[in-house]
Amino acid sequence: MARNSKRGRPVSPLDERHYQAIALLADGRMNYSDIADSVGVTRRTLQRWRQRKDFDRELRKVNAKLVNEWRRTSRERMRLRTAQDMTWYFNAIGTL
């Protein structure tokens, strides 16, 4: 088990509340106070969690997964297969 460098106390592994907070942070629709309330912790506790390396690592993984999913679906939506698709696209961006 890793130790907290400031106090020398063992750091507990991430539990279900941590993963709920990570999902809500990655979603980006709620502020810290709302996320803390929905998870059942104080805002300060949520801020301390953000400073943990393991929490930050998991949050970056979730964010990367969301970005990759968005890129993949965006490429699929923007694939121009026919002349009609191209006409629609150029009309949509205002070049035709």
Results as ranks from 00 to 15, higher is better:
residue 66 L to N: 11
residue 78 M to S: 02
residue 79 R to K: 09
residue 80 L to G: 04
residue 6 K to A: 15
residue 36 A to I: 03
residue 19 Y to N: 03
residue 27 D to Q: 13
residue 18 H to N: 10
residue 94 G to F: 05
residue 83 A to M: 13
residue 2 A to E: 10
residue 91 N to Y: 07
residue 50 R to H: 11
residue 77 R to Q: 10
residue 56 D to R: 04
residue 27 D to C: 10
residue 72 R to P: 02
residue 55 F to G: 01
residue 82 T to I: 06
residue 54 D to I: 00
residue 57 R to F: 14
residue 50 R to V: 09
residue 58 E to H: 07
residue 14 L to V: 04
residue 31 N to V: 07
residue 15 D to P: 03
residue 76 E to P: 05
residue 43 R to G: 06
residue 91 N to T: 11
residue 85 D to Y: 09
residue 34 D to W: 01
residue 7 R to H: 11
residue 86 M to F: 13
residue 44 R to M: 09
residue 62 V to H: 10
residue 40 G to D: 09
residue 43 R to T: 12
residue 18 H to G: 04
residue 42 T to F: 00
residue 39 V to I: 06
residue 36 A to K: 06
residue 83 A to N: 10
residue 93 I to A: 09
residue 48 R to L: 10
residue 26 A to V: 03
residue 89 Y to Q: 14
residue 7 R to S: 13
residue 29 R to C: 09
residue 44 R to W: 11
residue 27 D to M: 12
residue 17 R to H: 08
residue 41 V to C: 14
residue 65 K to R: 13
residue 78 M to E: 06
residue 56 D to M: 02
residue 42 T to M: 03
residue 89 Y to M: 14
residue 17 R to N: 08
residue 74 S to R: 12
residue 35 I to L: 08
residue 83 A to L: 15
residue 31 N to T: 04
residue 33 S to R: 12
residue 95 T to G: 01
residue 4 N to C: 12
residue 49 W to R: 00
residue 47 Q to C: 03
residue 7 R to T: 14
residue 65 K to T: 10
residue 67 V to H: 12
residue 48 R to Q: 12
residue 59 L to G: 00
residue 64 A to L: 11
residue 1 M to G: 04
residue 30 M to F: 09
residue 67 V to K: 15
residue 68 N to C: 05
residue 88 W to A: 15
residue 84 Q to M: 08
residue 57 R to G: 07
residue 91 N to M: 12
residue 85 D to A: 08
residue 9 R to F: 07
residue 92 A to D: 13
residue 28 G to D: 04
residue 16 E to I: 06
residue 65 K to C: 04
residue 44 R to K: 12
residue 77 R to H: 08
residue 14 L to H: 03
residue 59 L to I: 00
residue 34 D to A: 13
residue 40 G to I: 02
residue 7 R to F: 13
residue 72 R to S: 11
residue 65 K to S: 10
residue 69 E to S: 14
residue 73 T to I: 04
